[in-house]
């Protein structure tokens, strides 16, 4: 719906962005695919050779891969569950007629702006430390044995940290969605005799279905590659207990310098992310029509 002149100008203006993103996507991806088919280790330069699908066989049959995959799923699933359930609760609470909503909002949103390395270290040292962390003191002051989080429940500890970081995101999106719920609909439901619980089940939850889907998809994309939190707290351990896919690939690439199998692992991650991205893009795309 514009003239030829503006359309031509539009093409010129959009070209740099498209070109850059295209290169940014295609070049590394092509290299990853190439490397994944090679025996290549940075410790033995000059000894590259064609590997076929050996790297994939090696990476996928490595017991560490299965463990990392399960860890990844546990991490993603738990964080999603926690953030959505608590996020709905927080959003409902903030949508009540309360005093000082803006200040509560500031407090709730704050963790999202904390860089991952800081939040991980603060939780690890100031809160979860088995001797002088705040949690240890809380436990012992009610007569319980303090928990040594990173020794006994390392995965749970990581899950808690990551969930704390993402709770604001879920809460804020769900709150925004709640605020767009038509007031007249609620009044109509009240006229129809619906109580608070029925209103929540028949009105609020269906209204939240779409934003919850959006939260799930976006969080999943970020949570699949949680890295910094593991990097500064557990380093993937003890053993492989907190090694997720991202960390396993990082280890293969930059600690063992096994470029071939790290690339194969990277492609596995790309495939998993793309399956999810497919759904997200469809949801966002549908929104674009409106």
């Amino acid at each position: 719906m514009a003239t030829q002149q503006t359309r031509t100008l539009g093409r010129v203006l959009i070209a740099p962005a498209v070109a850059l993103l295209f290169v940014w996507m295609i070049v590394p991806l092509a290299m990853t695919i190439y490397f994944s088919l090679q025996y290549k280790n940075l410790l033995n330069p000059g000894e590259e050779s064609f590997a076929g699908l050996d790297n994939f066989t090696y990476f996928l049959t490595d017991p560490a891969f299965i463990t990392a995959l399960i860890n990844t799923l546990v991490l993603v699933g738990s964080v999603l569950l926690i953030t959505i359930v608590l996020g709905t609760f927080v959003a409902l609470l903030m949508n009540m007629p309360i005093y000082g909503r803006n200040i509560v909002r500031l407090m709730v949103i704050a963790p999202f702006f904390v860089m991952p390395t800081v939040s991980a270290l603060v939780w690890k040292n100031l809160l979860m430390h088995p001797v002088s962390g705040l949690f240890a003191w809380l436990m012992s002051s009610v007569g319980l044995e303090p928990i040594d989080w990173f020794t006994n429940y390392p995965m749970l500890a990581v899950i808690l940290i990551v969930a704390w970081q993402w709770l604001p995101f879920a809460s804020l999106i769900l709150l925004t969605a709640l605020q767009s719920l038509d007031e007249e609909q609620k009044e109509a439901a009240e006229m129809d005799g619906a109580g608070a619980v029925s209103k929540f089940i028949y009105l609020t939850l269906p209204h939240l279905a779409r934003p919850i889907t959006v939260v799930i998809l976006i969080e999943t994309i970020f949570l699949l590659t949680v890295f910094a939190e593991i990097f500064v707290t557990t380093g993937g351990g003890p053993g492989l207990q907190t090694t997720n896919l991202a960390f396993l690939i990082y280890q293969a690439a930059l600690l063992q310098f096994d470029v071939g199998s790290a690339s194969a692992g990277g492609l596995v991650a790309v495939v998993i992310a793309n399956i999810l991205a497919f759904f997200l893009v469809r949801i966002v795309g549908r929104n674009l029509e409106a």
């Binding site: 993103l21 290299m31 997200l280």
Partner: peptide, 25 residues
């Protein structure tokens, strides 16, 4: 619309998938 969605999809590429080539480059 396709261009927009394609741009969005580049953001979905997990960084770890291209860690090796970027690091080497």
């Amino acid at each position: 619309k396709d261009i927009l969605l394609w741009m969005l999809s580049t953001k979905m590429m997990p960084a770890v998938g291209v860690l090796v080539p970027i690091y080497l480059i």
